[in-house]
Every structure is written in structure tokens, then in C-alpha cells.
Nucleic acid binder design. Structure first.
Lengths: 180, 180
DNA sequence: GTCTATAAAAAGATAGAC
DNA sequence: GTCTATCTTTTTATAGAC
């Protein structure tokens, strides 16, 4: 896997950021090219169509999830706590890719929806051995989904209703008690 | 409050359904008019602009949430169980309005985002007296958000990863044990 | 690899007939 | 109240120069 050209990565970064910060409607090819500092023609050399651009974002997501699963498996606090804590958006690469993908899914992209389904299934498999039963697994996954959903809604704007700091500690402790 | 004309309601229904089933991109004024069986001019008589159409959807949401809060308060199984069970999309009017609104919010509509925030705060206030502490309230709200998020993603398509039947019973019981 | 210019379609909105 | 016709802007995509 040779590393892709810099300009290509810049375009993909810009597309992702527009999706996350300004929503799906704002992430046009024109706006993406402008934000990446290339012309529309330049963008279209790297990504022949909007579909190609979206597809590349989904490939990036898969790569980042692979890394996250590895980190989760060897996390000192345990996979469940690690999973919940990292569900609170920290503006890292995985969070951005995940929110951007969920924007595409909600615009109606079948491929994006399927990617989210696959990613969620992989997390579920990694967590299953560390919780009591099926309901406990549902609980952990749904709390994580809830955290992402709230982050996805509030975008770059005001601090949402998502718990942080002491509140997050209490929530994680509560979920661990209920599911272990 | 006089009841609005039939055609106006048909247009609003069609707009809502397009948002829920096919995503925000598909819910154009043209497509909405076609789905409602009126012309674009006919639609624009009732809703002078796309903003007006979206605003009407948010008003419908508020009305439906008022009714839901009343029902929740007098629910025999208790507000928490009622709240969680009705978070699993049953394709009722409130579910459709809520999912449609969340599509608008993710397109970047500030008014839709604010509506969701207000609605969530009202639910939080209604639930607060029935849970142990702040972390327990977070837990209930986040599980509900997670359920809606998954329903919003899977749209009309294949059965999502959301628990139903026996699985839902077990989840509700688990949350009640953890938060009461 | 990157650019400019431009075509083709779709979107929101206006005007005015009926 | 509802329609058709038309205008403007935006978005995706193509063609071809450099």
C-alpha cells in the first residue's frame, strides 16, 4: 500500500471536515476543492466523481477502526471503559471519519450505511467477551451510539448535553456496574 | 387553532416521509410536490419557501412531544420504561417527526438543532424525578438517543441492530435496575 | 498533476393564467 | 387554491490547454 499523494489527502481532509463542521449540504465538490486549495479540475484528477470521494472516506474509516480495535484490546482500563470514553468526541481522526460517514449515511448513501453497520459489528464482537450478556452488550453499544449521535448533532457549535469530566466518570462507572 | 387545509397537511406528510425514507437530499420541493400530488406552484401557495416548510415540520414536532409527555406522565409502567420503549421506532407520528427533524439538523439547520435540544431537555426534566442521580439520567437519555440514532440510520431498510421483543425487555430491565 | 472554460442537470423561487 | 412557464443559482461533470 503506497502512500497516496499529499494533494489527494488534503482533498479528502477538506471533504471530511466540511461534512463534520457544516453538514452534508455544504460538502460540495466546489467547496471541497476551495477548502483544499485546489481547483475543481485538480480535485477531479484524484477523485473522478463524488461517489469516488465518498468511497475514499469509507476506506479511511476502515483503516482507522482497525487501529482503534487494536488499541482497545490492549487498553489498561479495559475495553468497555475505553470504548465509552473514546465515544466522546475528542476531535481525533477516527471521530471525524465516523461523524462524516454518518452524515453520508443520513443523506441516503447505502454504502456509508453498510460501512457503519460493519464497523458497529466489529466493535460488538470485540466487546462481547467483556460483558455479562446480550442486554449488557446492547446497553454499552447504545450508550456509545447516543454519545456519537449527540456529538454529531451539535457539530462545531455549543457544548452539547454530552457528559464530560466527572459526569463521564460517573456514567462509565454506572455502565460498568450494570454490565460486568 | 383552526385545523389546516388537507392539501397543506398532505404536503407536510410527504416532506416528512421523504426525509425519513430517502434522506435529506431527496426531500426537494419538487419531489415533495410530486409525492403529495400537487404542483410546485400548489406547494408554494401553502409554504412560501423551503424554510417555511421546515418550520412547519418543527411546529408539528412540538405538538407531538406535548402529547407524548402527557402520556408518559400517566404511563402505568412508569416514565423510564415508557420512554425507552417508545424510543424504538414504531413508525408513529412522533417517531417520524423526530427522525425527519434530525435529518434537517444534520443538514445544518440551526432551528432544527435547537428544536431537538429543547425537546431533549423537556424529556430530561420529566424523567429526572424518576432516576437516582445525574449519571442515571444521562444513561437513560443516551440509551434512548442510541435507539433513535440506529433507527434513523437504517431508514426503511433491513432490520437494524436495535433490540426488540425479549431483547428490548431485558434492556429496559437492565436500565431500570441501574438507574432506580 | 493541475488549471480554465463550459456544458447539463437539478434546485429554489417568481409571475401570472385559470 | 392550484396550475404552467420561466428565471437564477448551484452542483456535478466534461474537454482540453498547460
Amino acid at each position: 500500500m503506497s502512500r497516496p499523494p499529499r494533494a489527494r489527502e488534503s482533498v479528502l481532509d477538506a471533504f471530511e471536515q466540511l461534512l463534520v463542521d457544516d453538514g452534508e449540504r455544504a460538502a460540495t465538490m466546489d467547496a471541497t476543492a476551495r477548502a483544499a486549495g485546489v481547483s475543481k479540475g485538480g480535485l477531479l484528477y484524484h477523485f473522478a466523481s463524488k461517489d469516488a470521494l465518498e468511497h475514499a472516506l469509507l476506506e479511511r474509516l476502515v483503516t482507522l477502526v482497525d487501529a482503534d480495535l487494536a488499541e482497545m484490546a490492549s487498553s489498561p482500563e479495559g475495553p468497555v471503559a475505553f470504548f465509552l470514553r473514546t465515544s466522546v468526541m475528542d476531535d481525533d481522526a477516527l471521530d471525524r471519519a465516523l461523524i462524516a460517514t454518518s452524515r453520508l449515511a443520513q443523506r441516503g448513501s447505502a454504502e456509508a450505511t453498510e460501512s457503519l453497520r460493519v464497523v458497529r459489528a466489529r466493535w460488538a464482537e470485540a466487546l462481547r467477551p467483556h460483558v455479562r450478556d446480550a442486554a449488557a452488550l446492547d446497553l454499552v453499544l447504545l450508550v456509545s451510539d447516543g454519545l456519537y449521535y449527540n456529538n454529531a448533532l451539535t457539530a462545531a457549535a455549543a457544548a452539547g448535553p454530552v457528559p464530560r469530566g466527572v459526569g463521564l466518570d460517573a456514567l462509565v462507572a454506572l455502565v460498568e456496574r450494570a454490565t460486568r
